[in-house]
């Protein structure tokens, strides 16, 4: 049995999906709730950096608990964002990464060096308060 997906003509144009960025105290929280395509991931990086600039946030928590895979592109975006944010004096903490995603990521050859991680959002907030409290 061979199924063929409907041809593209019947599908809508690619649209960039925006992820909401929340601000709490002096840091940002970004829950990634959708399967990001490359353009939307790149947009997210821009949005985060701009938000840091506008709000003077000193930290960024990216919640990836519902993200089902991180490939080289999204991995690169996350790593870069952490380094770029650091240059702007903001720390990045990733939280909630699923075991399967972490295993795949390191097998792929990526380890997101320099990014802090927490088990869950609660842990990330504690970690952030600790980092910023020093």
């Amino acid at each position: 049995m061979v199924k063929k997906r409907p041809s593209l003509a019947s599908r809508r144009e690619s649209v960039i999906q925006r992820i909401p960025i929340l601000k709490i105290r002096n840091y940002l929280i970004i829950p990634i709730q959708i399967d990001l395509d490359d353009l939307s991931a790149a947009q997210l990086q821009k949005d985060i950096l701009q938000k840091i600039d506008k709000t003077g946030a000193q930290g960024v928590i990216i919640d990836v608990s519902v993200v089902e895979m991180i490939d080289s592109y999204l991995g690169r975006i996350l790593g870069e964002t952490a380094r770029m944010a650091a240059l702007m004096d903001a720390k990045v903490v990733l939280c909630g990464m699923q075991p399967a995603v972490a295993i795949t990521l390191v097998e792929l050859g990526l380890s997101l060096e320099g990014v802090h991680s927490a088990l869950n959002l609660e842990g990330a907030i504690t970690m952030m308060e600790n980092i910023l409290g020093e």
Partner: peptide, 17 residues
Amino acid sequence: NSEIIPILEERDVVICR
């Protein structure tokens, strides 16, 4: 069983995976 997925634009990468 099989399925064919055309890759014609950005979004198709997501549809494919």
